[in-house]
Nucleic acid binder design. Structure first.
Length: 106
DNA sequence: ACACTGACCATAA
DNA sequence: ATTATGGCCAGTG
């Protein structure tokens, strides 16, 4: 059941994101083979909290570096605080120097 | 079994 | 430049 679903693949990639680094839905989706499946990546993360996995979903943002999923963290600034806690600066839920913190699964 | 939705991205008009 | 639509896969009603 590890590589059985799209979700699990996403989990393994996201869990490999090192501290202070971020990645995007598109990159993950593209890494999985279908950049059009970026939606599923977000879904996987949404289910990840149901799976109680150690998924640093706060390190996953959209193509613009915007914390699109911050509203799913339950709080208003939970995601933002987590990122800043790792040294990632954000303005209005957008990551500054995204490419500087950007991490690629390869 | 069918239809709609979902933390997106790219292209077309 | 903005808005609309298609596409991808899976889950839920």
């Amino acid at each position: 059941m590890a590589d059985k679903n799209f979700f699990d693949r996403v989990y393994q990639v996201v869990k490999q994101i090192p501290y202070g680094k971020v990645t995007t839905y598109g990159i993950i989706a593209e890494f999985l083979g279908s950049k059009r499946s970026a939606r599923m990546v977000g879904w996987a993360l949404n289910n990840s909290k149901y799976n109680l996995k150690n998924i640093p979903a706060h390190r996953v943002v959209n193509r613009q570096g915007i914390l699109t999923g911050k509203r799913h963290f339950g709080g208003n600034s939970t995601m933002k605080e987590l990122l800043e806690s790792e040294g990632i600066k954000t303005i209005d839920d957008k990551i500054i120097d995204l490419e500087k913190h950007l991490w690629h699964p390869l």
